[in-house]
Design a binder for these strands. Sequence first.
RNA 1: GCUGGGUUCGUAUAACGGUUAGUACUCAAGAUUCUCAAUCUUGCAAUAGGAGUUCGAUUCUCCUACCCAGUACCA
Length: 535
Amino acid sequence: MERRTRVRFAPSPTGPLHMGGVRTALYNYLYAKQHGGDFILRIEDTDSHRFVPGAEEYIIEALKWCGIVPDEGVDKDGKVVETASERHPHAPYRQSQRRGIYRAYAEQLVANGYAYYAFDSAEELEAVRSAAEARGETFTYNQKSRMSLRNSLTLSAEETSKLLEETVNWTIRFKMPENTVVAMDDMIRGHIEVNTDTLDDKVLWKRADELPTYHLANIVDDHLMEITEVIRGEEWLPSLPLHYMLYKAFGWEETRPRFAHLSLLLKPVGNGKLSKRDGDKMGFPVFPLRWVNAEGEASHGYREDGYFPEAFVNMLAMLGWNPGDDRELFSLEELIQAFSMEKVQKAGAKFNPDKAKWFNKEYLRMKSDEELTDLFVPILEANGIEVTGCYKCPVSHDFAAHSVSKNYVKGVVALIKERATFVADFWTIAPYLFAAPKEYVEKDAAKFWKEENYTLALKAAEHMYGYEGPWTAEAVGEELEGFIRGNEWPMGKVMNCLRLALSGASSGLGIADILSFIGKDEFRSRMENAVAQLG
RNA sequence: GCUGGGUUCGUAUAACGGUUAGUACUCAAGAUUCUCAAUCUUGCAAUAGGAGUUCGAUUCUCCUACCCAGUACCA
C-alpha cells in the first residue's frame, strides 16, 4: 500500500528549542518535502509538571524563522494549521488536548494481556529502589520483579477492581514479554536486535493526571496521524524495542513507521552533548532565538546575534549530513533536493562555531547591496546616524548633522561587504565613513604621527585640496600616490599618517576609498582636527 | 554496573576491498597592497589499538580501549 509520506517533529514545551532540536526538525522537514509529503508539528505536553510558559510559542517562532513551516500543527496563536485538512482530520496537535483518547488504548492493552494495572505508590517504588541500591543492585520493574509487587497480576480480581475504584495513584504498565528478541531496523543505523529481558515494564498511562506517558502517546498519535517515518534524536534509540512491542500489541505492525535515529550535537571542545553552558562560556548561541528564562537570565540566539536564517539552516544541515560531494552551500530548496538519509552520519557531530561564522560570511556576500543596506540602516540609526532618501535619490552626506543618504550607505556596503561576517560588522569596520574620528589609537599615533611624517602628509593633503580632477577612488588614488612617489617620500609613512588623521587608526580601508566617500571638505576638516589634537 | 549506539587530520566530512587517504573550517607561511582585511598560492595535520578474513583492508569479522545515550508515574 502506497502511503503519503508524513513525518512529525514532536518537541516538548519544557524550554527553548535547542539547535539540535532545530536540526531534527530540519531533517524531518527535508525528508517530508523531498518525498512530497507532510511535515507535522505536534506538541508533546504530557508532563504537566515541566510546562514552561512561552516555550511552545518559542518553538513555533524559531521554526518559522528557519523557514521550516509545518503543514499541520499548531501555529503561534495556538490555532490549528492543517493544509491537508480535507484529507486528514488529525487535529488537535497538542497532546494535552488529546488526553481523552489515550486511556481506551491503554485499557485495550490490559484487556488483551499486553499490560496490567500497577498500584505501587511512588514511595513504595522508591523504597524498593533504594533497598536494591543498598545491596548494590539496580531495581527494575520487569518480569522478574513484577510478581512480587502490587499489581493486577498479583492481586485478586476483586482487590484489583476495588483499588481501581478507590485509589487514584495507579498506573498501567506494559507487560514486557520474556526472553524475546526484538529485531528492528533503523534507516541510519541498520539492523538492531535487543532481548526483551533487558527491558522493563514501562508506565503507559497515569491515573493521577489521566495522562499517558511519552511512549503510549507517541505510538497512538503516530498511528492516528498516519506517520510514515519517525525521525528523532538518538536518545530514543533505547526505547525503540518498547515502541516496536507496542505496535505489535496494538496490531499496527502493518503501518508501523520506519525509524531514523539522529546522532546528537556535541560540544565544540571536550566531551559531551552541546549544552546552554557551552554557548555562554565560549560565546556562541545554542538557541535559534534569544531566550529569557523565568529567572531573567538571557541566552543568546542566532537571530539576535546577526546570523541569517539561511546560513544557520545550511550550517545545521551540514552537521552530520553531506551531499556526497564537495558542495557546502545549499539553499533550503537545494537541501530538499540533495538530502538523503543514507548520508546522515552515525556518530555525534561536534559543533564548530568558526564554521558557523564562515557560513554566515558566505551568505552575506551572496546578498545584494540593497538588501544589506536595509539591514544596516537600523544599526546606523542606533549609532546616531540618520539615513535619508531612497535608492533612486542622489548620494549625499552631512557629517556635521550626522546624516547620510541611503545611496551613500549602499556605496559603503558595496565597498566593505567582503570584510564582514555579520551586518553589524559594517559599523565596526568603518564608523569613520559616517562620522569624523573622535579619538586616535594611541599606539598608532605614537608610531606614525611624527613630525617628519605628518609634515609630508599635510603637504600631500595640501596638494589634494588643489586637485581639480574627478573625485573618484581611482582618480584620487592615482593622483595622491603619484604625488608622493614623485617626491620620493616614504609611501607607507605618509599614507598611514593620512589614515590616522582620517579614520583614527593606521590600519583599515584604503586612503583613496576613504577620500572618495568623505569628500574634499571633510578631508580638510579631518586633517585640521588631527593637527589640533595630535600636535 | 547493565543495555544499546558510536570511533578517518584540532573540527565537519570524502573515499560504498585497490587513491601519493581528497575537500572545507581553523592555524602557519608566502604573494599582493599605503596598512588592515579580502583574494590567490603553499604548508601543517587523520584511518583509536590488536587479532583475523583477503592477493590487498579506512572499508568485512572479533577483541580491547575510549566516547555518547538510556536505565523515571520526563520527554
